[in-house]
Design a protein around this nucleic acid. Structure first.
Length: 352
DNA sequence: TCTGGGGTCCTCCTTCGG
DNA sequence: TCTGCCGAAGGAGGACCC
């Protein structure tokens, strides 16, 4: 028996949950995001069903732009509580197998398993999830997390093109054949900015990155990240999984206002409200705040963030709100404001 | 097109005290 | 008393992910 890492990723999760509770939407273009009113500005698409994607609608697109592309689509507001519950159903289903389930968000998780036949296990996962929840997923199989996560992309491609079974295996054995010619952007953890930086070093493909001089990468991106990128090019990654949920380190609330805030008393009132809200929330969960950050987004999208560590940690919402207002003094408020946000960082829980 | 919200982690710079 | 070095901590900013 060998140790395998499987990555389970739900298909169009949020849209699928909405369609599950409203079956009449099946086959229709469904767009979830914002308030559900596609004529309002300053909202973006959280998820689009495959039918909506056929119209060119994508996650992150302004809802109004989606509405222009497909006015007949069904537009729904986001319902995080429903996605939480559906996600728990999926994870509980996977936990019925003798495996380690490491949750990575609503719609995905890594699963560690001892098996000689990971494909059969992956097929059993897919069957169990659809049977117990009515939701479908794809499974990437790898010899570490990096490869399992990337394998899921190929599983999705084969699944949507109809010539696969929603399962794909990517290991050291086929890494170079599958990945060598692909752009570095295809790697998990390389975004647009890092792709640009790597391209500047003449590294455009995964093979280039794999062959790159580690010291050059360390000099350019720092010791940790340089080492990490070199490993990424060769498909190396974590093989250890844990089913212990990670302790959150912070909580934030931010709000884009329907119309810009111009008057200082309005800015202060809204900032205070957000600070009180987020603090009450975390205190209700037994957390203690040790640091407060304030985010301000001006109409030109310039978004500075400033923070302050509290003299002593607190559970007092008023103190956090007062601190947020004092941090506001550090900003030059010379333009209308479209967004305010407050983040509170927690005192780490003592290790048991 | 006009660009949400909620997270985590890393690096770099500055400050401060020994 | 002044200077330099060093590490820790604070703070800003950036990048990435879903």
């Amino acid at each position: 028996m060998s140790w395998w890492v499987l990555h389970v990723d739900m298909d169009q999760f949020i849209a699928a949950v909405e369609i599950r509770r409203r079956p009449e939407l099946r086959g229709l273009p469904v767009v979830v995001g914002g308030s559900g009113d596609p004529t309002l500005p300053r909202q973006v698409v959280a998820t689009a069903s495959y039918e909506a994607r056929a119209f060119g609608i994508r996650s992150g697109m302004p809802v109004r732009a989606a509405y222009k592309k497909c006015p007949d689509a069904v537009f729904l507001p986001s319902d995080p509580a429903a996605y939480d519950a559906a996600s728990a159903e999926v994870m509980d289903t996977l936990r019925t197998f003798p495996v380690v389930v490491e949750v990575w968000g609503w719609d995905e998780c890594f699963v560690g398993a001892e098996t000689d036949d990971p494909e059969t296990l992956a097929a059993e996962f897919r069957a169990a999830v659809v049977e117990r929840t009515g939701l479908t997923c794809c499974v990437g199989i790898g010899d570490n997390k990096t490869r399992a996560k990337l394998a899921t992309n190929f599983a999705k491609l084969s699944n949507t093109s109809g010539d696969g079974n929603g399962i794909y295996r990517l290991t050291a054995a086929n890494w170079r054949e599958v990945m060598d010619h692909r752009p570095v952007r295809d790697l998990w953890g390389i975004g647009a900015r890092m792709e640009h930086n790597l391209n500047e070093l003449g590294l455009t493909t995964v093979a280039d990155l794999a062959a790159a001089d580690v010291d050059t990468l360390k000099k350019r991106f720092g010791p940790n990240m340089g080492t990490w990128y070199a490993a990424l090019g060769r498909g190396l990654g974590d093989t250890q999984l844990t089913d212990v949920p990670r302790e959150p380190v912070s909580r934030s609330h931010e709000e884009t206002f329907p119309s810009d805030l111009v008057e200082r008393p309005d800015v202060e009132r809204e900032l205070r409200r957000i600070a009180l809200e987020v603090t009450r929330e975390v205190v209700a969960e037994g957390r203690t705040v040790q640091r407060v950050s304030v985010k301000v987004r001006f109409i030109n999208f310039y978004t500075p963030i400033k923070s302050r560590k509290l003299k002593s940690s607190t559970q007092d919402p008023e103190l956090v709100a007062t601190t947020a207002l004092s941090i506001l003094e550090k900003f030059t408020l010379n333009r209308p404001i479209r967004l305010l946000g407050v983040r509170v960082e927690f005192v780490p829980s003592p290790l048991i």
